[in-house]
Amino acid sequence: MKMMDFKDKAGIVTGAASGIGAAIARELVAQGGRVVIADFDEEAARALSNELGAEHTAVFRLDVSDPVANEALVAFALGTFDRLDFAVNNAGIGAPSMKLADIPLDSWSRVIDVDLNSVFYAMKYQIPAMVERGGGAIVNMASILGAVGWAGSAAYVTSKHALLGMTKVAALDYADAGLRINAVGPGFVSTPALEKTMTSSEIASLAGKHALNRLARPEEIAMVTSFLLSERASFVTGTYYPVDGGYLAI
């Protein structure tokens, strides 16, 4: 039987309609939590909400790069569940591979807005709501590319490196307010988006870069994320948890 770590608790997961975000939402609901499924794809978000149950979930259509929308999301969560105990800032995008000097300015700005600035906007409004209640927990979804480089991905790698720094500073700023803030760094994960954009041979090559010789399952990222949000991680803050199948050890 699963521990009900999130019984009577409620929070937000962004990018929750598919992939890692959906796995996190499922895990949190399975452990008794209530979750706002926030995603740009409202149709997919509603499908997940129907799967998990309207009594456990709510849906919010979110453009994470819009600060006003992030403020409205927190207000929606408070209005729906009357509390905000946790948040997972998971939404993100990639970009076509190209050398740094070849990146169009609008492409650079878009990746930085979605993968970095959005997390600042999210925490700017999540943190006061949690502090007012006496604390909470936030997990920011980084990547193993927050620790190493990857040729052709300057904007993405930059955003994830900066995200780790922002997470550490936020954790220090609000530790005395009862707020814990951490980052998770997945290795490459088997998701529908990845499978649509890569051939089977490319996926096999990517899997071989991990010591376990496979890609992660979204559920494996969700397990670590839920741990960091739970009271079982009560002495964990300001950290970066790679969940990478040994990628960084090679």
Rank of each mutant, 00 (worst) to 15 (best):
F227N: 00
K7M: 03
G33M: 07
A142L: 01
T199S: 15
I144H: 04
I24T: 02
N117L: 04
L100V: 13
N182I: 09
Y247R: 07
H56W: 09
I203E: 15
A183W: 12
S143F: 07
M4P: 00
Y240V: 03
L48I: 00
I221Y: 09
F188P: 11
G53M: 03
T191C: 14
E231C: 00
L228V: 13
A17M: 10
V224T: 12
F120G: 00
A25Y: 14
P218K: 09
V169Q: 06
D176I: 14
N50G: 08
A58R: 07
A154W: 15
E132R: 09
E195R: 13
S118R: 06
E231Y: 00
D5C: 02
R232S: 03
D113C: 11
V189T: 13
I93N: 00
A122G: 03
L116A: 02
P186Y: 14
N182A: 04
I20T: 05
V35L: 11
S153I: 12
I12C: 08
A249E: 04
E132M: 07
Y174A: 00
L105A: 01
M198G: 13
L145Y: 15
N117G: 01
I221R: 14
M141H: 08
D66T: 00
V13A: 08
I12M: 12
S226M: 11
I138C: 03
A147T: 09
D85T: 00
A58E: 04
D173W: 10
R34D: 05
S109V: 02
S109G: 06
A10V: 05
M98A: 04
S153W: 15
Y241N: 06
T191P: 15
V184W: 15
L28C: 04
Y156C: 10
E43Q: 05
R26E: 07
D82M: 09
K9C: 01
E219F: 14
L228N: 02
D244C: 01
G165R: 03
A151S: 13
A45F: 10
E231V: 02
D85F: 12
D173E: 06
Y174R: 00
K160Y: 11
